[in-house]
Computed example of a mutant assay.
Amino acid sequence: MNWEVFEGLLSGVNKYSTAFGRVWLSLIFIFRLLVYVVAAERVWSDDHKDFDCNTRQPGCGNVCFDHFFPVSHIRLWALQLILVTCPSLLVIMHVAYREAKQQRHRAAGGDDCRHIYLNPGKKRGGLWWTYLLSLVFKAGVDVVFLYIFYHFYRNYTLPRVVKCELPPCPNVVDCFISRPTEKNIFTLFMVVTACVCVVLSLVEAAYLIGKRCHECLLAGGGEGRRHSQDGTLSCAEPAGTGGQVFHGADYKPPTASIPPTASSPDTLPEEEVALP
């Protein structure tokens, strides 16, 4: 495997993830992938070779092993890790598609053309839905595999001795599993880390939905404030009226008494009127 390509994929996933997504990525890479590669694969390498039954009947050991281990833990974990990490790669591919689309648009319209995406990695529109669905898919994959492990191996544990009476075994035979305690420890460790990853994916999905709802509420509040300001301006005096107030056609202005002045002949003093 080319580790430079793998490092580029990890840096891309880390770049376009939230804080919860970065913690999830650390759990996947350190506590699941490295444990799988370094330790777990070696623990299950001798599961068939050291599966001993107290009989020499040909084929009895193979039939009993297939009955109690229908699918190996190590192969189920490999398939689980592949399916869990694929949705994160889809997010990177979506961002790369946005960047390529924007480059084609700039090549066609020049450098002065309007940008299609101000930030191709910003989780808006289709990328937001892709990211949210990837979280739901990752949590769903882990839950399904946890159920599969529980269905095949009750309580996620392996017994020390299993009794088998399947043909061609001549009678009920006892079969002994190799290193059951060590396998149980690794099984419980992988189950716990898978449960933590499920919780982180659900919390991150709730965080994205809550943040989106909060932004919508803030946008709606801004629209409401603008409408209220427009209504306040319409009730006040119109601009450019010079302080005049307009009334209806049936409005009658109030009459005011005019004080008498000395220049008016009708307002002469009584002494002047009496003179000849």
Rank of each mutant, 00 (worst) to 15 (best):
M1V: 10
M1D: 15
E4W: 02
E7N: 08
S11T: 11
G12K: 09
K15C: 15
Y16L: 14
Y16F: 12
T18V: 15
G21L: 02
G21R: 03
S26A: 06
L27A: 02
I30F: 14
I30A: 11
R32N: 09
L34K: 12
V38A: 07
A40E: 10
E41R: 12
R42C: 09
S45N: 06
D47G: 08
D47V: 13
H48D: 12
K49T: 12
D50K: 11
F51C: 05
D52H: 12
C53F: 03
T55M: 08
T55H: 03
T55Q: 04
R56Q: 10
Q57Y: 01
G61F: 11
G61L: 11
V63K: 00
V63Y: 00
F68S: 02
F69M: 07
S72R: 09
S72T: 04
H73S: 02
H73T: 04
H73W: 06
H73P: 03
I74N: 04
L76D: 07
W77G: 04
L79M: 10
L83T: 12
V84N: 08
L90R: 15
I92P: 00
I92Q: 09
H94S: 06
H94K: 07
V95M: 07
V95D: 00
A96Y: 13
R98S: 08
E99F: 07
K101F: 13
Q102Y: 03
R106M: 11
G110P: 03
D111P: 03
C113W: 06
H115S: 13
N119H: 04
G121P: 05
R124P: 00
G125W: 14
G125C: 15
G126N: 14
Y131D: 07
L132A: 14
L133F: 15
L133S: 14
F137V: 13
A139S: 15
G140C: 13
V143S: 01
Y147Q: 14
F149M: 12
Y150C: 11
H151A: 09
R154W: 14
R154S: 12
R154D: 15
N155T: 12
C164D: 00
E165M: 11
P168Y: 03
C169S: 04
P170I: 03
N171I: 08
V172S: 06
T181C: 02
E182W: 15
K183W: 12
N184G: 01
I185H: 04
I185V: 04
F189G: 01
M190T: 09
T193W: 01
A194L: 05
A194Q: 03
A194I: 05
A194D: 04
V199I: 14
V199K: 08
S201Y: 02
S201R: 00
A206N: 13
K211Y: 13
C213R: 02
H214G: 09
L218R: 09
L218S: 07
G222K: 11
G224T: 02
R226F: 10
S228F: 11
Q229W: 12
D230L: 07
G231M: 10
G231R: 10
G231Q: 10
T232H: 08
A236W: 06
P238W: 05
P238A: 08
T241I: 02
Q244E: 02
F246H: 00
D250C: 06
P253K: 11
P253V: 09
I258A: 05
P259N: 00
P260F: 08
S264A: 05
D266N: 06
T267S: 09
E270A: 10
E272G: 04
